[in-house]
Design a binder for these strands. Sequence first.
DNA 1: CATCTGACGACCG
DNA 2: GCGGTCGCCAGAT
Length: 114
Amino acid sequence: MSWDPVFRLVQRIPRGRVLTYGALAKALRLPGGARSAGRAMAATPSGKGIPWHRVVGEHGKILIREPYASLQRRLLESEGITIIESRADLKRHLWKPSKKSPPKYRTPKKRIQR
DNA sequence: CATCTGACGACCG
DNA sequence: GCGGTCGCCAGAT
């Protein structure tokens, strides 16, 4: 599975903005919904400039575990996003994948048979 | 091939 | 608002 479309979209999230796994999944029509978005992020290659920390759970909650949670919080705050009780203020920072036909994820029609 | 394991979220009590 | 269950499905073991 190529999570490329996911990475591309995440890469477009502006500084100081966040997106939720659910919104991400919905925007790309990921099969399996939000969890798929989560899997994609878990597979995020580091060192590629992908702002993974801008993806949070519903209500802006940071869902990942330590030690990443602390790191994510720190990164978000450094961008001017206020985190209260492990949550980002979505009202102010939720980002919408505006215009430009968001790359739509497509399920492979069929899998390679063994 | 069988099972387990989640960077989720909706639902219910 | 909080904790438990369930559907979902790709990777890991």
